[in-house]
């Protein structure tokens, strides 16, 4: 696949993506509410957040599997769906998705080879050619096509299924791969194998990843940059090392504090954050995190904090924006 925009052109730019799911009887779940970011070529963008924060909806929006209500997607310099832009079909060829390993990620009535070959078939390859490409993709993910190609999903282990899922995405020779909780359901040892497989594939094929997970340790391990989501919007974004070493947003801090530590002196004795996030159907006014934030002040209820630009290390919090009216903002300045 040719590199159209040149190395400096981001692989994917998302600007103001929004998706509200209407609730029967009025109102809407604001699953994704104004999310903007960009992914540079060859980098891995990690997306973290609690369950229900809109991570999976975001993943589906990026491939237009769910149609966004508002916002723009620019794939390698070409607007998705716009006249003279990239078509949906072409987008879905160049960007692929790996789903969480679950009972439903592979068709139970299809042998692994046919599942992987489906993509090439869609592109118009003949059955033999598609099967050959599927075998090639299976080989890439470390599965012997002779042995595993004819197997049905119930004859595969979790790790093998996930490898087939990855092979299915690779069979279309994409440039961008969206990994939606791709390793979350696997055993720790298998997870490590699949992660190193993903790293190798990225190196060999020059892929760009959007890595969505709730597991902070894994995200830190794989990501170049991170996006922290809370209740459908971006709380903080920046280079992974920066965000994990010096978190700016109070939400990121509690998220990091809730990690389990190997160090007995730093064991978590008290949950740093309690309760469930508020309902995305009826988010709090102003800053969405203020209802659980230890530093909330009146200004947080009044005004929505600006997320800042998406370059560098940014946080959507009044405390880091001088002149916002928050008492801690002066200290930051």
């Amino acid at each position: 696949m040719p590199d159209r925009g040149g190395p400096a052109q981001p692989m994917l730019i998302a600007a103001g993506l929004r998706k509200h799911f209407p609730i029967p009887g009025g109102g809407a779940v604001r699953a994704v509410d104004g999310v903007s970011f960009s992914v540079a070529k060859g980098e891995t963008l990690g997306v973290v957040g609690e369950s229900g924060c809109g991570k999976s909806t975001l993943a589906r929006l990026l491939l237009h599997l769910v149609r966004p209500d508002a916002g723009e997607l620019v794939f390698d310099g070409e607007a998705v769906g716009a006249p003279r832009g990239i078509t949906l079909k072409e987008l879905r060829r160049q960007a692929q998705m790996v789903f969480q390993d679950s009972a439903s990620s592979l068709n139970p009535r299809m042998p692994a080879r046919d599942s992987v070959a489906f993509g090439p078939r869609v592109l118009g390859r003949g059955p033999a050619q598609a099967a050959a490409e599927a075998d090639e993709a299976l080989r890439r993910v470390g599965l012997d096509p002779m042995q595993f190609g004819p197997r049905y999903p119930h004859e595969l282990s979790g790790g093998q299924k996930q490898r087939v899922n990855i092979a299915r995405a690779l069979a279309l020779q994409p440039r961008l791969v969206i990994l939606d909780e791709a390793v979350s359901a696997l055993d720790k040892s298998v997870e490590a194998q699949v992660l190193s497989l993903l790293a190798r594939l990225k190196r060999e094929l020059g892929l760009t990843y959007v890595f969505i997970s709730h597991d902070l340790a894994v995200v830190r391990h794989v990501s170049d940059r991170v996006l922290v989501m809370y209740l459908g919007s971006v709380a903080e974004s920046g280079p992974a090392d920066d965000v994990f070493a010096r978190p700016l947003h109070p939400y990121t801090r509690v998220l990091l504090a809730s990690r389990l530590s190997m160090d007995p002196d730093r064991r978590v004795e008290q949950a740093p954050i309690v309760g469930d996030p508020p309902s995305p159907a009826n988010p709090p006014s102003g800053c969405r995190f203020r209802t659980r934030c230890p530093h909330a002040e009146p200004v947080c209820a009044d005004r929505v904090p600006s997320p800042g630009s998406w370059d560098g290390h940014q946080a959507a919090c009044h405390m880091v924006h001088p002149g916002s009216g928050h008492s801690a903002a002066a200290l930051a300045a």
């Binding site: 879905r92 789903f99 990620s105 592979l106 599942s115």
Partner: peptide
């Protein structure tokens, strides 16, 4: 998910 994955291939 596998139907969604099929849609993601552009089928």
């Amino acid at each position: 998910d596998f139907v969604e994955a099929a849609r993601a291939t552009g089928a």
